[in-house]
Design a binder for these strands. Sequence first.
DNA 1: GCATAATACTTGAGTAGTCAAGCTTTGCGC
DNA 2: GCGCAAAGCTTGACTACTCAAGTATTATGC
Lengths: 150, 150
Amino acid sequence: MSSLTHPMQLILTLVKTQGQVLKPLESTLSIHGISFTEWLVMHRLSQSSDHTIKRVSLADGIGVTASGVTRLLLPMEKVGWIERVANARDARVSLVRLTPAGLEAYQQATKSIEYAAERVTNMMNQQQVEQCMGLLSSLHLSAIDAAQLS
Amino acid sequence: MSSLTHPMQLILTLVKTQGQVLKPLESTLSIHGISFTEWLVMHRLSQSSDHTIKRVSLADGIGVTASGVTRLLLPMEKVGWIERVANARDARVSLVRLTPAGLEAYQQATKSIEYAAERVTNMMNQQQVEQCMGLLSSLHLSAIDAAQLS
DNA sequence: GCATAATACTTGAGTAGTCAAGCTTTGCGC
DNA sequence: GCGCAAAGCTTGACTACTCAAGTATTATGC
C-alpha cells in the first residue's frame, strides 16, 4: 500500500519507532529532573577515564554541535553534576568532568531508564534485541559510509 | 564495555542510527525546499482518499502535536502545496488537502529521498532491510503496549 | 432542551537545539 | 620566529517544535 521502496519504508519505521520509544524513557527520566540528552552526556562522561572529556568530543559523541554542548552544560554545571577543568597543555580546550554528585544522579537515573527500556522491549526476546541492534549498527555504518561519499 | 542492559544498548543504537541516517535525507530534501517533516505530511496526504485528511489525524500520523501541525502547515499553504477544506458536518474540523502542485512536489522529492535512502542502506541486502523493519515494528508495538500500561 | 463535557483547532510563551560569526589559542610553512 | 590557517569554544539570531490556555463547535446525561 505504501508504494515506497523498502529502504525508505525502513527509514519511516525507524523514525516512527524512535518517536514512540523515546517518550516513555523521557518521562521516566523527568522524574529525576534529567533530560534524555543530559543522560547521554553523563553516560559518556561516566565511561571516560577520570570522568573527564573534551567538549568537542562530547559534542560528536552525543550528536550535537559544539554550541549545543555549551548550552546543554550550562544548567548541568549550575546544579553541580559537572564541572569545568582547564587543560594545561592547550588553553583553548575546556574539559568537562562528571562530579561525584553527577555520577550519583547518573547511576540513579540509569536504573530507572534501564527498567523503562526493558518495559519498552517487552515483546522481544533477548535474541531479537541483539539481532536488531546488529542490523541497526550496520545501517549506522552504511549511513556514515554514504555521507563520506558525498 | 558499555555496562548497560541490552535493551538500553538497543535504544542507544537506535537513537544514534537515526541521527546519522536522517542527515543525508534532510540535505537531499533541502534541495527541493522541503523539510523531512513536510515530506511526512505530504506522504500521509498522498495516501489518503481524495488527498484529504483531518488535522488531528495528521498530527498523530506524523507524531507531532495539534499545534505543531498548525505551525507546520502555515508555510506549506502559502506556497500552495496544501489547502484548507471546511467540513460541512462538523464546523470544528478543518481538513487539509494536498494540491496538484503539492502532489507534484511530493513526487519529485520522493524520487530524491528514495535514492538517498538506498545509498544510506548500501551495506545491507534486501533481506536485512526487511528483517530490520520487522524487528523495529515489533519494538514499536512493544513501546505502544508499554505506554498503555502506565 | 439545556448544562456540562469533550473535541478541534489556534495562539502566546517557553525550550532545545542549529547555524554563522567572532574570539582566543595553537600549529604549520618557510 | 612570524604570519596565517585551523581548532576550540561562545554568543546572537533563528527554527521547529511543545505545553497550557483560550475559543468555537458538537456530543452527552438527565
